[in-house]
Design a protein around this nucleic acid. Structure first.
Length: 125
RNA sequence: UUGGGCAGCCCAGAUAACCGCUCCCGGCCAAUUCCGGCUUGGGGGAGGAACUUCCGGACUCCACAGGGCAGUGCGCCGCCCGAAAGGACGGGACGGCGGGGCCAUAUCACCCCGCUGGACGGAAAGUGCAACAGAAAAAAUACCGCCCGCAAGGGUAAGGGUGAAAUGGUGCGGCAAGAGCGCACCGCGCAUUUAGCAAUAAAUGCGGCACGGCAAACCCCGCACGGAGCAAGGCCAAACCGGUCCACACGCGGCCCGCGUUCGCGACCAAGUAGGCCGCUAAGAGUAAUGGUUAUCCCGGCCCGCAAUGGCCGACAGAAUCCGGGGUAUCGGCUGCCUCGUUUU
RNA sequence: GGAGAGGUGGCCGAGCGGUUUAAGGCACAGUCCUGGAAAGACUGCAUACGGGAAACCGUAUCGAGAGUUCGAAUCUCUCCCUCUCCG
């Protein structure tokens, strides 16, 4: 019943995948968070996900916290996202990500702008 | 008593539920093996600084007969811990601050005591530097002065003045005026003796002062050090390119062998790219885990309030080969010292 | 993770122990020139604090803090920040 886990095939690994999504994908921005997305190679595969954090965001504690919050927000909402797409998030302001609720709100807003949400009727954005 | 500062030591909230990540073990699937998949099972999963990269090692590769030069770093003495860096304790000299003595009084100096500081070998091995001011900045000299002299000139270094620093200091004698020129004390140097393991100190004698500062300037002495760093280094290895063999075809040739060329679905080899693995860990990744939510309690702070209840907040900061130090940041607690304020005697 | 290089007025930058007027350029401001502008010429120009009626003067500041030295932007040490390289 609860949201699924976040196993390895739901995350991007290779440098080629990152370059393909960032250079060839669609770029959106909301509250200092950038999202690139592009449809992945496998049609039946689940949505894949990654976070890129620059050192300009802050020291290691701040960068780790941003990645963990965005990953948790994706984990709780991944069944509402169109399968087969690759998403790369990149926070540029550390003030936005204070709590997991704020991270979920930003993630759902970004995915709604990208028209990637399914079951959007039961969850208001 | 409250607040602050410094030093030392301790700690770095706890429990439960649910969701999730990573590694190991076990089990299951598959299977000749390797690779792999699943798992309701069991277990491990950030720090005192993980920060900094300021030192020292382990480890790896490169270089290397022996020795030297160059370069870099360190530098009081004793003892202890340590592989080394580096620490702990004690002592000495020097600097700073405070107090006391000496003195008719007071500054300086000197002596004694207490607290405190630290990259504390050598300035009689040599070279160099010292702006401005000042006559003169280490080689010697003389601006105003003082004295002799009619003057020319000479003698002086006491006083003035400059400077961060002026060629021993104070006093008495001496002199034309002066001067270690002479003497006493102090300083300095040398020698001896004594005390001490030593750094060093004290005493005695001699020397008339010759020998100022800077070595985090070059340098000298002593000691240590080969260079690079896990992105080190090693193993496996697609594709493309290359080489050898083989087969076919063509050329040289009457034919075979042989040689050459082209092509290839072949076989093998070398190289080592993409990629993977080892190095790598009782945390051990490779877009890189150690998380999220809720509840209760604990500790500390802030706010509203008469008070209880209540509300809000939770220091510095995140491993990437490992280990030992230095430095820096910081929540709370304890101990000691210092101190502003308040109160009491 | 590791190895280096560097921080100087608003900007770029020399200076590397000695009053520096902290060179020089850009930018900015003023004056001249022009009918007006551009170009050119000349002059000024760092920030803070204190003093002064003003002109101006004094002190401090070369990323920050200590140390060496008579004297530090410069030499040494410790922190902070920026940039580059190594797969």
């Amino acid at each position: 019943m609860p949201s699924n886990g976040l196993p390895r095939e739901c995350r991007l690994h290779l440098k080629k995948d990152f370059q393909r999504v960032i250079q060839g994908g669609v770029k959106l921005q909301y509250k200092g968070i950038i999202l690139w997305w592009r449809s992945g190679p496998g049609a039946g595969k689940p949505a894949r996900f990654a976070v890129v954090v620059s050192r300009k965001l802050g020291p290691a504690v701040v960068r780790n916290r941003a990645k963990r919050l965005l990953r948790e927000a994706f984990r709780l909402n991944q069944k509402n996202i169109q399968p087969g797409t690759d998403l790369v998030f990149s926070p540029r302001e550390s003030e936005t990500l204070t709590h997991v609720h704020a991270a979920q709100e930003a993630l759902k807003t970004l995915c709604g702008k990208a028209a990637l949400l399914i079951n959007s009727s039961e969850k208001q954005v």
